[in-house]
Computed example of a mutant assay.
Amino acid sequence: MKDLLKRALALLAVAGLAAGCAAPPKHVDYAAFKESKPRSILVLPPLNESPDVTATYSMLSQVSYPLAEAGYYVLPVALVDETFRQNGLTTPGDIHAVPPPKLRDIFGADAALYITVTDYGTKYQVVNSATVVSAKAKLVDLRTGGTLWTGAASASNSQSGNAGGGLVGMLVAAAVAQVINSVSDASYSVAGTTSQKLLSAGSPGGILYGPRSARYGAD
């Protein structure tokens, strides 16, 4: 019993050391971003790598706000989506394949934001139920085709099954939480949090403030 306890304490010590030695934030080169000085951003319908078919438009509907708050003019996403449809482009994959100069000719924007949703939905994890939304993004200069910025973010809404009844009670509580999250589409609100984390200016490694922000040029 003592040997088992010692091993457990040793594992906890190693885990604590690993957490304490986390890698510092990755350095981001903003030279191209600052030289480009984009004023308007075209948001393309996100690619969806998750099994949930609602992920693309759930994320698309929530990215304009943080970009506008950051100081950019964002082309209305509904109008952009309809324009693509009228031109026979109905899937994010086809839209992302359009050359940057063509996008600029059609929409007149300075830059385009390419988003990929890598995780979206509620997962049952034995004694808890977690709703996770993860995404990555790339901002591309439509005048040159060069990449100005890349980033990634993830958010979750984990509901632990800490209820009475021991392990059985915890399992039941977790299952109920998963059903509630699925029915109420908890992923939508978590996607909003992910969008904020991914596209808000001023955070380490985040996008720079745009010309409509009072903090423009302060980065």
Rank of each mutant, 00 (worst) to 15 (best):
A31H: 13
S154L: 01
S40G: 04
A152G: 13
R143N: 14
N48I: 10
I207K: 07
P92V: 11
G20C: 14
R143K: 15
P100S: 08
F84A: 03
F33S: 01
D105Y: 00
A13G: 11
A31Y: 07
A177R: 14
F107R: 09
L103G: 00
N48R: 07
T194Y: 06
V126H: 07
F33A: 03
V132M: 05
A55M: 06
T118E: 09
T194P: 04
Y188W: 02
D81Y: 02
S189Q: 13
A191M: 08
G71E: 12
S213W: 04
T144M: 06
Y114C: 03
A137Y: 12
K197P: 03
G164Q: 05
V53G: 05
T150D: 10
V172P: 00
A186I: 01
R104C: 02
Q86F: 09
H27V: 12
I41G: 07
S134G: 14
G210S: 11
G88L: 12
V168E: 15
L208K: 05
G20T: 02
S64K: 11
L9M: 11
P92R: 04
G151H: 09
D141G: 05
L148W: 06
Q86V: 02
A174P: 01
S156T: 12
S129Q: 07
G93M: 05
F84Y: 06
T144P: 07
G169K: 11
A163M: 04
S213Q: 06
N162T: 12
D110Q: 13
Q178P: 00
V77Q: 12
A152I: 05
T91I: 06
V80H: 12
L198F: 08
A112C: 03
